[in-house]
Nucleic acid binder design. Structure first.
Lengths: 335, 335
DNA sequence: CTGTTAGCGCTTTCAA
DNA sequence: TTGAAAGCGCTAACAG
């Protein structure tokens, strides 16, 4: 490995002078600078960011902890985070927790050791420990997509409750009464909030929902499939389904199909999270979509403003608007 | 920041002893170890991986350079790489080049500075420079998905030529003669190889294809859309399309739809790369699918075997099998 | 079993 | 305008 010392020797100067050239700092005679530049080029010298970071106490590296990197919603976030970060000279380490709190904790420890400058976190659960850990060590953190109840922490997300309210109200207005909601993990705010929104829509319409219609599960296609099958076996099966994310929706659809039910003729299906147009042949699903790209961008910028010390305001919550798109998967109930 | 020295002081021992406890190495009296452990816990000490890496010359970090992190094919690879790496105690830095050689080069420089232990690279172009750069600095690298002609380098990929051959032959056997192939970037081996496979299928059938039918473009939905529109405006438009990746296929499909053409009744459409079942309502497309998960896993394991020094064989090329799945997007040409 | 010394590659003083 | 010394946090090698 070539070091700054090798370059110095090669150029007949001290290491310090090389450092000055590298960082464009202090005074270096033009002629000396050229000699150093030449030496750098000749030796193919690459400065060691580790050593530099050890001094600066700055790695220019962020961490993005996601629960499911195969979900396009999160992929889009990942992409926009990467873009926003690299624009400002930061790299991003991606971590995938699979919705597991244990994995999240494990990653956090490694990332702390690696001295990341900041963390973007989609928390696996509403557990406050991860956030506390980071805050104790004054590593800036921005929570994405989900809420951590009883925690003062920067957050960028959408209004899950409102979105679910809109979807449910829309179905109620179409005349549905037996509406099922397919939640994800019970320990995650988006699940809880979306179910709350569902309940509010019923309450405001002065209608009752059956306890049977409200289900938790996972944010996976398999879970959507399983729960839908259960619901179809009820004495009074739903006439409409609200899936609390895109994967659940796809699993639900498969179960409906297998049961010989036509969407939207026999049942309606609406969902959270759009699937990017680049991925589907026929956008079909009525959805409340989240601006994933914007979420990632704003979260990153907020994080960077924190760790640059330029932003010392109290923790803030940025709520981005949802967009409801009515497509062909929803219609009035069968008479 | 708490350092090993603080812990030492707190426990009334030397830094070295703390280091020994941390790394479970050498002899430490049980009672001393306990005292140190207690101090670590009390101070909430987190070892600084930067300092450690500076000594060890090992960061336990890999880089994965992708061309498009929003493409599920690459997302799946990303996920399996992350899984395989974290299993062996490595973190992964993801980089997205957007198929740009300039971005690739830029990332490579940063990663070199950050002293990553190894690189997994989906090269943006067939340019040999990136690989040479890494090899000169003896940073192990495994090329994924694409071939770098005239380069001795570990590679994990599928046989693009064969896949395209199979798709084309299948269409020829159905009776199609006017078959278009929608390539991606011309500077990427997968584009070139898939077109070669197409040509071979024609050659073996003793048939001629029209030069018009062979198009390069980008690996994007937009490009698939544009090129398909062009092709439809030809005097003798294609009766079948081979898309060289999933995004191109979706763009092509949209163009066909807009032109009022029914798939497969009016035209057939087949493609490379499956879209994961978790993402689509009705798998519809006849495809040659690549085992993305396996590609990521094998590439990571190969890379790790290289940087552990356990594998000093000459560079190898691992070719994984493709799977052709015939669905509803293809059929015989309209009489 | 434990501590001291030196050094990884770089940069911040401070001095020349 | 340049250099020498010291130190970031950690550990290998050697003493004790």
């Amino acid at each position: 490995m070539t070091t700054i010392g090798d370059v110095a020797k090669h150029a007949g100067v001290s290491a310090m002078t090389v450092s000055r050239v590298l960082n464009n700092y202090g005074y270096v005679k033009e002629e000396t600078r050229e000699r150093v530049d030449k030496a750098i080029a000749e030796l193919g010298f690459v400065p060691n960011a580790l050593a530099r970071s050890l001094r600066f106490k700055r790695t220019n590296t962020l961490a993005l902890i996601l629960t499911d990197i195969t979900n396009p919603f999160f992929t889009t976030i990942a992409r926009s985070v990467e873009d926003a970060a690299s624009e400002k000279g930061f790299n991003v380490m991606f971590c995938n927790t699979d919705e597991s709190q244990a994995k999240e904790t494990e990653y956090l420890n490694v990332l702390l050791q690696k001295q990341v400058d900041g963390v973007l976190l989609v928390p696996a659960t509403s557990n406050t420990e991860s956030i506390s850990l980071l805050q104790e060590r004054s590593v800036p953190v921005v929570v994405i997509d989900r809420r951590i109840p009883d925690m003062q922490v920067d957050t960028v997300r959408c209004d899950s409750e409102l979105g679910a309210y809109q979807l449910t109200k829309y179905l109620l207005d179409l005349g549905h009464r037996q509406i099922a909601i397919l939640g994800g993990t019970e320990t995650v705010s988006t699940s809880v909030d979306r179910i709350t929104g569902y309940q509010r829509a019923f309450a405001e319409a002065n209608l009752e929902y059956s306890q049977d219609m409200v289900r938790y599960g996972q944010f996976t296609s398999q879970s959507g499939y399983d729960v839908t099958q259960e619901l179809l076996n009820l004495e009074r099966p739903p006439t409409a389904f609200v899936a609390t994310n895109n994967f659940i929706a796809i699993g639900a659809y498969r179960a409906l199909q297998e049961a010989g039910l036509q969407v939207p003729h026999d049942v309606s299906l609406v969902a959270f999270d759009d699937i990017p147009a680049a991925l589907v042949f026929n956008p079909f699903l009525t959805v409340v979509g989240q601006p994933a790209h914007e979420i990632g961008r704003q979260a990153t910028n907020l994080l960077l403003s924190r760790l640059n010390g330029g932003n010392t305001n109290p923790p803030q919550e940025i709520i981005l608007p949802l967009t409801m798109t009515i497509r062909q998967s929803s219609g009035p109930p069968k008479p």
